[in-house]
Design a protein around this nucleic acid. Structure first.
Lengths: 144, 144
DNA sequence: TAGCAATAGTTGTTATAGCAACTAATTTTA
DNA sequence: TAAAATTAGTTGCTATAACAACTATTGCTA
């Protein structure tokens, strides 16, 4: 990789693209009164998939700091979308799972998310998707 | 693009990669006592390039909200890296530029940033760089 | 030209991100 | 087995992100 390319700000492009996506998602959530943020959605999505997991596991799955997860969960609990249950065999652990309302919220938001993902991938191929995935994975692995 | 790919969380991968890069950068800044954050660096970099610009232009160049730019500039002014000058012909505008210390800071941090970019692009080719750029540009353009 | 709209920037508020310090519980080790 | 180290989670703090509301200024237009 030449210095010209190294000096080119890919970081900026990643950041700008991510912000564009995030803002687009949030605007759509707001427009349809979903009453949820993008990162709250990411946690709900993972809780739907994994049913009953600890803060720690959720943090690992979402690449979020455990403190951040702790605080987002707090907001989701306030919204009655999530409930916490202390573990009995290891009393340090706290399990988290969706409430019935949380499951409903997932089912309500999910189609909108699929739609928006489709919009983002417009004019791009399966190969493009695989390329993006591959390149991002290599970058991720390169960094200590 | 098939639904399988649409439903695959690229957003998450972008987010995770960006966080990894950001944390790596910040840890290196901290380890070498650069006394600067990643986003503060991005503004310094742009100010070095563009010499004397308004908050608004800086916001556009960095894909940041003008309120965010306003607050980061405030921090940079406190660190004596940046100075503000009210425009005379349009008194709403405030021009921003690096102080001599700001220029020094740029020259101090710059080699480290190049090094870290090189690390991130390890095992990747010029073609990969162009592919990533192309795909991100299409996604960006797809989103209203 | 008076009034209205648009623009540049700041301030207030809420959310996410990450580090440090802390509590409580569990595991390791001397 | 008692002390030390590790682990799970919370709380405090600072920074970034975005929206709304606000001031001050400038441009537009009836």
């Amino acid at each position: 990789m030449h210095d010209t390319f190294v000096s080119n700000p890919s970081f900026f492009k990643l950041d700008a693209t991510l912000k564009k996506i995030r803002n687009y998602w949030q605007k759509n959530f707001d427009a349809r009164q979903m009453d949820i943020t993008v990162d709250q959605w990411l946690l709900v999505e993972n809780l739907y998939k994994h049913k009953r997991i600890t803060h720690n596991e959720l943090a690992r799955l979402t690449s979020k700091d455990i403190t951040t997860v702790s605080r987002i969960i707090e907001l989701l609990v306030k919204k009655d979308l999530v409930e916490r249950q202390g573990s009995t065999d290891d009393r340090r652990k706290v399990f988290v799972q969706l409430t019935p309302q949380g499951v409903n919220k997932y089912k309500e938001v999910r189609p909108l998310v699929l739609e928006m993902r489709k919009t983002g991938w417009n004019n791009l191929s399966e190969t493009d998707y695989n390329e993006l995935t591959r390149i991002l994975d290599v970058i991720y692995a390169n960094i200590p």
